[in-house]
């Protein structure tokens, strides 16, 4: 304090250049990595410390879900697609990651409102910690693909290293979309009900029980295919499936361009909207 005695007073709230907000959002994540680690540990401990199977649930849950989805889909539609249960498992795991991160990120300002009583940390950290937690769970559940690989005689390739990257991209897109919605959700509580409904619908519109090539065979590559490519889960799920089966994705270059555009725009607008509106939104939370 003594050293600062002659320093000028500075505004507590400084005007920010909105164009630099996305870069600062990344820097905040890095600077607050210790807090993110502690928040993840808190959530992980809360969920598993008293469970008999502990972290085993992170592996078991998507496996059981995949078994149920496979059973239902094969009874309803019937498919002779090679390694179909594995494809459903990948779809279920990615969808679970996307929907968990999107809903927890959108709800982060409301869920952490008691911490905003005193916490002087970037508010996006609370959404980020739930995204990291969901990513870790999804990563852990990848252990479950080992029995599938043995059963279907799949071989490991260098491309497997891309799987965590696709998981991370999926979490990042969902986190960004959640940041866009979080300030609105504090003002209009109906938003969270709307998101829950959309996520239920999104489950069927995402390639969880179906695959991109099944869709192509059924609907061709017209405007409906272009519309479906706006779904940010299409590319990661299809990519990881193709990595595991060592086969092409069948997604045209336009599909990748749409994915990159949706991801980048979500990140840019999500971080800017959150930065400009989250502080005020805390009053509503």
């Amino acid at each position: 304090m003594e050293g600062e005695a002659h320093k000028a007073l500075e505004p507590l709230w400084k005007a920010k250049n909105p164009l630099l907000v996305p870069i600062r959002a990344v820097m905040d994540l890095w600077n607050e990595r210790n807090l993110i680690r502690l928040l993840v540990k808190r959530d992980f401990t809360s969920r598993y410390r008293r469970a008999g199977l502990g972290v085993g649930w992170a592996i078991l849950e998507p496996l059981l879900l995949a078994a149920v989805y496979t059973f239902i889909f094969q009874i309803l539609v019937g498919t002779d697609r090679f390694a179909y249960p594995l494809l459903v498992f990948i779809g279920a795991m990615f969808w679970r990651l996307f929907s968990t991160v999107l809903s927890s990120s959108s709800n982060s300002l409301i869920a952490s409102r008691n911490l905003f009583q005193f916490a002087r940390v970037p508010k996006s950290i609370f959404a980020a910690s739930s995204a990291v937690m969901a990513f870790q769970m999804a990563f852990l559940s990848m252990v479950s693909i080992l029995p599938f690989m043995w059963y279907y005689d799949l071989s490991v390739t260098w491309a497997y290293l891309m799987i965590p990257i696709w998981l991370g991209l999926t979490a990042l897109v969902a986190w960004s979309m959640g940041l866009l919605l979080a300030p609105v959700a504090t003002k209009i509580p109906d938003i969270m009900h709307g998101i829950r409904f959309l996520l239920r619908v999104g489950f069927f519109l995402s390639p969880v029980m179906w695959t991109y090539d099944m869709f192509g065979r059924r609907f061709g590559d017209g405007w409906l295919a272009a519309l479906v490519q706006c779904n940010p889960t299409i590319v990661p799920i299809t990519e990881v499936r193709s990595i595991l089966l060592s086969e092409p994705t069948g997604i045209p270059p336009l599909g990748y361009q749409v994915f990159v555009a949706v991801s980048a725009l979500s990140f840019i607008f999500g971080t800017i909207a959150f930065d400009t509106r989250a502080h005020k939104a805390v009053i509503h939370a």
Binding site: E4, L9, P11, F118, K280
Partner: peptide, 20 residues
């Protein structure tokens, strides 16, 4: 004053660390 949310109007100026 703790920087948890900004004022609608007016300005807060300070120097040094603050904690609530």
């Amino acid at each position: 004053l703790a920087g948890i949310f900004p004022p609608d109007q007016g300005e807060i100026l300070m120097r040094g660390s603050v904690s609530l």
